[in-house]
């Protein structure tokens, strides 16, 4: 899932500025399951903004609404009227949700209420960890299902650097060394041989380094008559 974190109320207040009519838009997908921007959080943020406005003596109309997926225009169409009426839309979607609103409503001012953090999963109650860097050329088949691009601090492809100690990364004792994990898993699976091969330099052109990415599936495209 996409994992995000809420911005501080102070930053949110400064992003909202002196707008009178504020619409907080939550998203029912990834940011709901990571407790950053679902219906519950949207209601809390709206309440906090209302309270702050009252304390500051600012007259402000703050409402909230949550859609199933902010990253699909069909869902946004359902709240199109509310969006168009707002002076500012505070999106509690990930960065994709914010941009989906901006792109679909060219005349509406939209600001982010979250910081989109990473692609990851919950590892225990209240803890999320990064797992994928969306590099566009998956090598998990070589590394026992543990990604060194996302999980090694240096994205190394040929094994651990000299900074691996007691199973953790040199940059932070809280970060497990991805290569230690890969080594242990391949050893357990009797596949250590995979580590003795030299992996060539990665083709980063499928990653963000190749410029903004786009996928076109000819098999799914509508024919001109269908459009």
């Amino acid at each position: 899932m996409i994992v995000a974190e809420q911005k501080t109320l102070d930053e949110i207040k400064s992003l909202v500025g002196d707008a009178r009519k504020v619409l907080v838009v939550g998203c029912g997908t990834c940011v709901t399951v990571c407790f950053a921007g679902g219906a519950r959080e949207a209601a809390i943020v709206a309440t906090s903004l209302r309270m702050a406005s009252r304390l500051e003596g600012v007259e402000r109309d703050v409402t909230d609404v949550t859609v199933q997926r902010q990253c699909e225009w069909e869902y946004l169409d359902g709240i199109g009227e509310k969006i168009s009426e707002a002076d500012v839309v505070l999106s509690l979607g990930c960065g994709i949700g914010v941009q989906a609103i901006a792109e679909h409503f060219p005349d509406v001012w939209v600001v982010p209420g979250l910081n989109t953090s990473f692609l990851g999963l919950p590892t225990e109650q209240g803890v999320w960890a990064e797992r994928c860097a969306a590099c566009g050329d998956c090598i998990l088949g070589l590394t026992g299902g543990i990604c060194p691009i996302a999980r090694c601090s240096k994205s190394l492809l040929n094994g651990p650097c000299g900074g691996s100690e007691d199973g953790h990364c040199e940059i932070d004792p809280e970060i497990p060394c991805a290569w230690q994990l890969i080594y242990e898993r391949l050893e357990r699976m009797g596949r250590l041989d995979a580590l003795f091969e030299i992996q060539p330099p990665k083709d980063w052109s499928t990653s963000r380094d190749g410029g903004p990415r786009k996928i076109v599936r000819a098999d799914l495209r509508l024919s001109p008559e269908e459009e």
Binding site: S155, L156, N158, G163, P201, K202, W204
Partner: peptide
């Protein structure tokens, strides 16, 4: 490979690691 930038005096820098030391 190089020490991670978080140790140094520009910890907010972007790192590269396009290739690794073996490559």
């Amino acid at each position: 490979t190089g020490d991670h930038q978080s140790f140094g005096n520009h910890p907010t820098a972007k790192n590269v690691f396009d290739i690794d030391s073996i490559q």
